[in-house]
């Protein structure tokens, strides 16, 4: 989700050519971090045997993200992430922290990466 600064000559030429819209076109496809967060949160809950009535849905909250869902027995699931790089998250079920750590580590593990 990063965007670099084009090298000076090309940037100057792009700007001079009146194609600012083309520079803005390099914006990445939306939604990468928040999608990763949701996936990792579900992976954690699955690994911990939490049965979900409402799978966590995530929204942007300030610089970070927040997700909420419920268990089959009606307990709230909350996921928060400060949106920092690398992306971290805290997952709670009924107020109890069940995970606090790296989004990427969770996803890599779920893909059954073998070291």
């Amino acid at each position: 989700m990063r965007r670099s600064v084009l090298a000076a000559p090309l940037l100057a030429a792009l700007a001079l050519a009146g194609c600012a819209s083309q520079i803005s076109a390099l914006a990445p496809v939306s939604g990468g971090d928040i999608t990763a967060l949701r996936i990792a949160a579900i992976d954690v809950l699955e690994q911990q045997g939490v049965e979900m009535m409402l799978v966590p849905a995530c929204v942007t909250e300030g610089e970070g993200y927040a997700c909420s869902g419920t268990t089959f027995d009606g307990k709230p699931i909350e996921v928060t992430s400060p949106g920092t790089d690398p992306l971290g998250m805290t997952v709670t079920v009924d107020g109890a922290v069940v995970f606090d750590g790296s989004v990427k580590d969770v996803i890599d593990k779920a893909a059954q990466v073998t070291e």
Partner: peptide, 12 residues
Amino acid sequence: EFPAMRLGSSMD
């Protein structure tokens, strides 16, 4: 990119 992420979760 982040290849493992593209699998989604089991709920996906």
